[in-house]
Write a protein that binds this DNA or RNA. Structure first.
Lengths: 263, 263
DNA sequence: ATGGACGTTGCAGAGCATGCAACGCACCAG
DNA sequence: CTGGTGCGTTGCATGCTCTGCAACGTCCAT
C-alpha cells in the first residue's frame, strides 16, 4: 500500500539470507542505489539493520529485542510454560507449543528432550504446516471457509512417504483431527520422528494454541508414544483451564519471575 | 531520513508495549488515522503486524521468524553454543553469551542453571549495560573515542548499592577490566546475584562477544564463583580459537544439526 | 431513534521520495 | 606514481506518492 515502506520492509527478509552490500540490496529491490541507501539508513536509525565493519548490512539488534517482546506478550506462552516443563519432566521428550497466525504455524515455546538424541527445531521458525501435528489441530479449528482457502493454497512437499500428499488428503485428516480432538504426526516430516499433540482452547472453545510431544523412533516407538496421549491431553486441558480463567492458578513449581534481567 | 518508513518503523516498538487500536497508533504517531491505517496495512502485508480478532494490532509472526534468522546468522553464537552447554554441565550455573551492537549489549544465547533457583533474563533483551560483567568486557574493548562517547551518554541507574554510579567510575572499571582480561558483576544489578565473565576474541584480537557464568548468593558465594574464573576463561579462549579459525573444530559432543524443523 | 466511537474510502494538493549525475575514496594494475 | 575501476555518498530538480481532510458505514450504548 505504501511504496516506500513496502520497499524498506522488503529489505529485511533479504538481509535475513545473509549480509549484503548496498549495491546488492539496490539490485534486489530494483531501485537506484541512492534510494536503497536512504531506506537502509532509516532502518539503521531504528536499529533494524546493523552495519558491520566491512560496511555490509545485517539484521540488527532491535529486531531481536522486539521479537522477544512480542513473544513475551503472548500470554498463552507464559501460562503454558510451566506446564510444558512439568510434562517434559514426566516424559522426558521434547515438548513444543505452537500458534497459528495468517497462513503460518509457528513454534512459540519449546522444552528440550532429556534424551541424548534430540531433534532440531527452533522457536520462531514456521512449522511444516502440512504434516506437523500441532498444525493439524490449529488448522482443523479454523472456520470452514478460511480452512478451505488456506489448505488450497498450501504446498504439499513430500518430506517422507508419509507426508500429506495434497489438499484433499489434508482436509480429510483435518476432519478426523477435529473429530477426535487430538493429532499425530507419524514420520510425516522426518521418517524417524513421531509426535502426538493436543489443543489448547480459550474460554469460547476456540483453539488458541497447540502443544505436542515429539520423540524419535530410536527412543520410543510410535505405539509407546501414543500411550502418552492421555497425559498430553490432560496437560493441554490444564493450560486451557488456566488460560480461559476457569482454573485458579496454583503455583505448584518454583517460580522465577521478577521482571528483571541479569548478566 | 525517510519520513514514511520512519513512521512505519516507529509503530513496531509501540506495538511491543501491547496491542493497540488504530486511533491509539495514530495518536502516538501524531498522524491522521488514515495515514496510520495505510502504514499498518503495509506492515500487515509483510507480516510484521497481526490483527487480532478484536481488530487491534499486535506484532506479527514474521518479526519473530526474522529475528530468529538474524540470530542463527550470528556465527559466534553457533560456534559458542556447544561450549556454553559443556560449561553449564561442568558448573551447573546459568551461562550467558552477549554481543555489543550500537550502544547496546544484548544476550544472544543462554543456558539455564541446573539449580532450582534460577535467575530471570532473556535472549534478545538488552543487558543492564552499566553493571553487567559481559557489558564491561565488550565496552572495554571499544576504541578509546567511541568508548568515551558511549559511556558519557549512558544512564547510570542504581539497581543496588553496588551499581556503577556514574561515567567516571565506569571508565575506571573498564580500564581495570581491559587490563585484567576478565570482569565481574558482584551484586551490581541484583543484590544477591554475582557473575564472572570472559571475552571471546576474533582473529584480530578484537572482542567479538563475551560470556558469563551467573549464580545467586544462596547457591554459591562470590568467592566460590570466582574459583570458576579459570574454567570460564578457558572456555572463552576455546571459543575464540575456534571462531578465529585457529583451532580445528573437534565435534566432541553429540551434535544435532540437520537443518530441519520438526513438530 | 440518535449520538458517538471507530475503521474505511476517494480525492486534491504538496510534501517527500526518487533517479540522475557528479563527487570522494579506496584499491589495484600498469 | 598514475589512471582505472568499484564502491558509497551527496545535491538537486522532477513528479510520483503520501498525506490530511471530509464523508460514509458500521456498531454499540444511550
Amino acid at each position: 500500500m505504501s511504496q516506500t515502506v513496502d520497499r524498506a520492509l522488503s529489505i529485511l527478509p533479504l538481509l535475513a539470507e545473509g549480509p549484503a552490500d548496498l549495491g546488492r540490496v539496490a539490485d534486489r529491490l530494483g531501485v537506484h542505489k541512492s534510494t536503497a541507501l536512504r531506506l537502509l539508513r532509516t532502518l539503521h536509525d531504528h536499529g533494524f539493520v546493523y552495519r558491520q565493519s566491512d560496511q555490509r548490512y545485517r539484521l540488527g539488534a532491535r529486531l531481536i529485542a522486539l521479537a522477544q517482546e512480542a513473544m513475551e506478550n503472548l500470554d498463552v506462552r507464559e501460562i503454558a510454560h510451566p506446564h510444558l516443563v512439568r510434562l517434559n519432566e514426566q516424559c522426558g521428550h521434547t515438548v513444543h507449543l505452537a500458534v497459528y497466525e495468517e497462513d503460518e504455524v509457528l513454534y512459540i515455546d519449546k522444552v528440550e528432550s532429556r534424551y541424548p538424541v534430540r531433534m532440531y527445531s527452533r522457536i520462531g521458525k514456521p512449522v511444516a504446516i502440512t504434516v506437523a501435528a500441532v498444525a493439524k489441530l490449529l488448522l482443523a479449528d479454523l472456520p470452514e471457509g478460511e480452512r478451505r482457502a488456506v489448505v488450497e493454497k498450501l504446498d504439499y512437499p513430500l518430506y517422507t512417504a508419509r507426508s500429506t500428499p495434497h489438499a484433499d488428503a489434508f482436509l480429510k485428516e483435518l476432519a478426523k483431527v477435529r473429530e477426535q480432538g487430538w493429532a499425530t504426526d507419524l514420520g510425516g516430516h522426518e521418517e524417524s520422528i513421531n509426535c502426538v499433540a493436543a489443543p489448547i482452547r480459550g474460554a469460547d472453545g476456540r483453539v488458541v494454541a497447540a502443544m505436542s510431544v515429539s520423540a524419535p523412533n530410536v527412543v520410543v516407538t510410535a505405539d509407546e508414544l501414543l500411550t502418552l496421549l492421555p497425559l498430553v491431553r490432560r496437560t493441554a486441558d490444564a493450560i486451557s483451564g488456566e488460560y480461559s480463567g476457569r482454573t485458579p492458578v496454583h503455583h505448584a513449581e518454583p517460580q522465577h519471575h521478577p521482571d528483571k534481567d541479569t548478566p
